[in-house]
Design a protein around this nucleic acid. Sequence first.
DNA 1: TTGTATGCGTTATCAT
DNA 2: ATGATAACGCATACAA
Lengths: 343, 343
Amino acid sequence: MSEVAKLAGVAISTVSRALANPGRVNEKTHAKIDAAARQLGYPPNAMARGLRIGKSNTIMIVLPGSLYYGASQVIPQILQSINKALIQSGYNLMIANLDRGAGSERHILDLPFGGAVRGAIILSSKSPEVDGRSLASAGLPIVSMLLDMSDAGLPSVVTNDHEAVRDVTAELIGLGHKRFLYLARPEGSYHDVERFGGVLKALDAAGMPENAVVRSGGNLDYQQGFQIGLEAVKDFVELAEKPTAVIATSDDMAISFMSRVQGLGFRIPGDLSIVSFDGSPVCEFCSPPLSTIEQPVTEMGEAAVALLLTCIEGAETSIERRKVIPSKLILRESMARPRIEQE
Amino acid sequence: MSEVAKLAGVAISTVSRALANPGRVNEKTHAKIDAAARQLGYPPNAMARGLRIGKSNTIMIVLPGSLYYGASQVIPQILQSINKALIQSGYNLMIANLDRGAGSERHILDLPFGGAVRGAIILSSKSPEVDGRSLASAGLPIVSMLLDMSDAGLPSVVTNDHEAVRDVTAELIGLGHKRFLYLARPEGSYHDVERFGGVLKALDAAGMPENAVVRSGGNLDYQQGFQIGLEAVKDFVELAEKPTAVIATSDDMAISFMSRVQGLGFRIPGDLSIVSFDGSPVCEFCSPPLSTIEQPVTEMGEAAVALLLTCIEGAETSIERRKVIPSKLILRESMARPRIEQE
DNA sequence: TTGTATGCGTTATCAT
DNA sequence: ATGATAACGCATACAA
């Protein structure tokens, strides 16, 4: 910077002003400085700037390991939309994986406490915590995504999990289905509560009993979606009264379930209708093409960034605590009327 | 840090030494300093440290937009393995998307030139370049991954694209196949050259003519894998002499091709054998289960990190220019003998 | 082994 | 509107 100042014939502080505050410097000198900077190929030093102003321009995304598996595109799409939105506002994106073991938690916490990051987008219900330090205690703006953590004080961006599942269940009921198999996420998790609640709501609205739906997979703490689908097939074959519709809470579960259950001779959608959650592009090419509830992850990513930047840039106005972006049901051949009317 | 020094009753420089160079300080004082630091919850400031030593501890991964789509898990798996390996060595991972438009290129270049990153892992053949600045000219250690850029002077981590495709083609020939359809990546790209070269090599070795294989999809510059598969179906139906085997260069292409072509009444593997590339977990649940060449992306990520850190930490020894990690052919039902012997 | 002092590149405060 | 200067938090050369 001092070289730029020398070449432009001004003081170093003037250069700083010209490059940072576009308004506070004479137009002519500004032009001279710009020219000098370009000529010298002057690159502003991010760390010096960060040290001086006490703030970084890096945002951290906290991803649980469980999100990394499967055919859905949530991780790539989210990363892409978030990064794009951040760059437009002059921020960078840093990845923080929340794996098992204190090592990753410590690393995640070192980032904000070391002043390296300015804000965080978190996609996990459990926030890292070690040695009494937590993400929240770092005094860092945090936005939750996918999961509603607004009760814990975190602005959240979610989709309408409950209503979407309720609606598709109602749709299945309307088609004539009376017994359901529900492939669950870990029991008690946000998504499990919301989505299974949607099933129960629809049953209730139709005057059907809660035991019209059988759960599978929810007792497993952490695993691949494909595995849940395979386990669910075992549960399915043991059921005396076979469900005619399956509601899966991820495309992976649905895909492995469908594949295996077809191998056992069950016809889809003849014997069994299936609908799942996520909206992976690959669902279109399953046989039969799989109905799925598409999560608008791109929009959710953009909304999360917008919310986070609002927190960071400290708009006086009270920030939104919870933003819901509706999902979209994509109907395909895997859903139909049950072939055999029950009872 | 000064507070820690005061509490421990030592000078600030001693604290610095104790925390950075574990050897150069008395054991007793070290303990005192550690205690004081813990008591105060002292977090070292990453930016101040970076400014002082002139180096950052952040690594950048440059991802082309084209990698983001599809059912394969390359992006998540690579990110996970790279990040894990980096953390173990005390580095952080920053994402840089190489999208179309100069905006993203400029942003990518600002990172190294601004001193924000210490090294880069690049998964694209075209390195960003704007205003005469390029990634290479930033004087930054760079490692290429997936693509062999060792000719351009970049240490590279790749899989054995050529040999893997050659071998699987030979396997198909051994099964009795005589005509092939090849679903290509963008023509002339590294992967296209390597993999299609493998097909030709196998044909040659079997004394078969080059026109035993028909290419599809390579004329398209940039698009989703699924789309290539759909286009290929159009090409396929127009062929007078139908191939009996399809070699796809991504699972996405294979999945959409297989889905559509089955819809037209072709039987797999009866009428048509299919093998693809990537090793996505979802292939196991296709109907029929899809043979695929599994890219060892996790090991490749780890190797890329190891290579990059070698460059950074400047081992005197000459660094490896090209590391090949072999892929693994996963044979499933989509490959079989052709039902109808030709001619 | 430990303390003192300087500088990394930038921004902000205070003069001019 | 611009220039001089201090300070951000840390690491190191040097002195003790």
